[in-house]
Design a protein around this nucleic acid. Sequence first.
DNA 1: CTAACGTATCAGTGGATAATGATATGACAG
DNA 2: CTGTCATATCATTATCCACTGATACGTTAG
Lengths: 116, 116
Amino acid sequence: MTAQNIQDNLSAPDTLELRAKLFRGLSDPSRLTILDALVSDERNVQEIVGHTGLGQPNVSNHLRCLLECGLVSRRSKGRFVRYRLADRRVADLIRDADQLLASTANGVDACQSYTD
Amino acid sequence: MTAQNIQDNLSAPDTLELRAKLFRGLSDPSRLTILDALVSDERNVQEIVGHTGLGQPNVSNHLRCLLECGLVSRRSKGRFVRYRLADRRVADLIRDADQLLASTANGVDACQSYTD
DNA sequence: CTAACGTATCAGTGGATAATGATATGACAG
DNA sequence: CTGTCATATCATTATCCACTGATACGTTAG
């Protein structure tokens, strides 16, 4: 592939930004914990707070991030707000990442020594 | 922690850190550009600099990050150092993310207005 | 050996962001 | 209406990270 092709295919205005943003939503342990709590069930904020042990404002903030990244969706139910994964593929992405980690764990683990 | 431990115990506390780290490697536009340059070919640093337009120290730094995250591998070849994707599944992950984005692009795009 | 080149690292800077406590908004019970 | 609860936002702080220019390291050429 040439540089020009890369420019044409991949550097569409903000495709890279969108991809980066999606992955950024997945790049924080707290958010991954929250997503884990949502894999099986739809939950409200308090339940997530209890499940994760994180502070309530912190959870709300992360949920906003996840919502903006398109990783979760929300619906109001009385005083409660219930969150769930936006798409089954969100869980798939995490699972695929785990499988990749199982293969490349050496490299990830030995972060400091990567000499050839 | 050894790689074996990681494989044995995917739900250990540190697993979240590893997952987060993997996704963090994918969460930056510059790194995604670099990975795009490596999808088709193995390349050395200079070539990547040329393809991406990023500064050489910047590229080296991102490559170190990608290496630590297990997303690329490297091999020395004379004065040059050639980088390639660590696993075909790295490209798969990015492609899957794109497909997810194609479905949820509205939510990702309209970051500021998500009222229910 | 010396020079030139490829790559990595260092120091400094600006900007993003995660966590927390305080507070605001909004809905229900009575 | 009033108080209470669920959630969101604000302000602050500390930390992390991307980028840049300068420089160090290692290899090849001559």
